[in-house]
Design a protein around this nucleic acid. Structure first.
Lengths: 204, 204
DNA sequence: TGTTTAATTAATCAATTGATTAAATCATTC
DNA sequence: GAATGATTTAATCAATTGATTAATTAAACA
């Protein structure tokens, strides 16, 4: 009779909100419990500790973020330019829908760099994906379609241009004060503009 | 006799280290005091509260960061391409010397977006600087040297490409595990490569 | 129904935190 | 060198934190 709601799921959702908004240290178990409308002891009953719960949320966010780029990069149907266009469009859209996510991940990972190491090694697919992309890049260069650029550098550029503006969005809102629509419009334009920017930069 | 050292300065330096490493919440007054080799009460004696001390450090970091780009953007001797080259070179060099700084600023500002609003409004010069740059861009476009791009978008791109890789540097180290020199080399190359990338992207 | 297991609550613990206090020590001035 | 004010210390406070406990209630099962 009390099971008209899923306590465990409620906790996860509340934890996601609180952690993504406040980060690990600033979030409290009381806050999470309150937002899930349950007793604080329940959080410990379902997840043993704050850290357990936190890394569950962090893992989830990371997976969500990585699987997007892996899917595109391994799609053999797409040439290099289509890949760039797809990645840029998908990530910028994704981030404007889930603005907390990149900030959360960056903020926490910065203070716990060891974690990302472990997470990456588990997910070895990343290395092979990177190699595939690297080879595709090499081929295009030999064909003479693009100028020389290392895969790492290009990927850094793509990700930087997608993620960074999303991260500073709350700041931009503050600076612009009243009129947020300006920055929102810029972001909307960037879904295609950034890809054009990158392609112009690497095409011969 | 006890004054062979400057307590106030010692505290500031210790606070800078601790805050930049751990962020506001995770840093403790005890930690700061210990790292300055003084009694914890001294920190409250010189700076009334943890917040006072923190915002002093945050302000300092912000000023350091902003005045660089303002100086370059207002230098009328430089054409648009030289400005881009200078900004990219200076920032990437700056960040590889002070790796904590961008991470600290980003991480904290993300959780306290109101602060950046206040800080920006105090520093109204930013708006005029932006307008100057915008006009210069417009002129170059009319001359036919560059293709059309909004000043905001271009600035976003420049800053993204400089700042983001610096932020994820500690992560990259973890992923690369043993061989940090690879990423360091990439960063070194980027001091000129990123500017080339941007210029190629906007030149007609 | 009676019993056992699972879920939930309120109360509390021990540790850590920012902050304060009162006393001690140093430095300066007369 | 005594007095005054600035600096420093050790001790402590009150609040908050993650975690635990013991008791209570609901669910499942026989």
């Amino acid at each position: 009779m009390k099971k008209d709601r899923n306590t465990e799921q409620d906790i996860i959702e509340a934890a996601r909100l609180v952690f993504q908004e406040k980060g690990f240290k600033e979030a409290t178990m009381r806050d999470i419990a309150a937002r899930a409308n349950i007793n604080m002891a329940m959080v410990h009953y379902y997840f043993r500790s704050k850290e357990n719960l936190f890394f569950m949320i962090l893992d989830e966010a990371f997976r969500l973020l990585v699987e997007k780029i892996v899917t595109v990069l391994t799609n053999e149907e797409l040439d290099i330019f289509e890949k760039i266009r797809t990645i840029v469009r998908e990530y910028i859209t994704f981030f404007s829908e889930k603005p907390f996510l990149p900030q959360f991940l960056m903020g926490e990972v910065i203070r716990n760099p060891e974690w990302i190491g472990k997470r990456m090694l588990e997910n070895m697919s990343f290395l092979t994906v990177f190699r595939t992309f690297s080879e595709q890049l090499e081929k295009e260069y030999e064909k003479g379609t693009i100028r020389q650029i290392s895969a790492l550098s290009l990927l850094l550029n793509i990700i930087s241009l997608c993620v960074f503006p999303a991260i500073i969005k709350p700041m931009a809102y503050q600076v612009n004060d009243c009129d947020n629509s300006v920055f929102d419009l810029v972001i909307e334009d960037r879904k295609t503009e950034v890809a054009d920017f990158i392609i112009k930069a690497i095409k011969v």
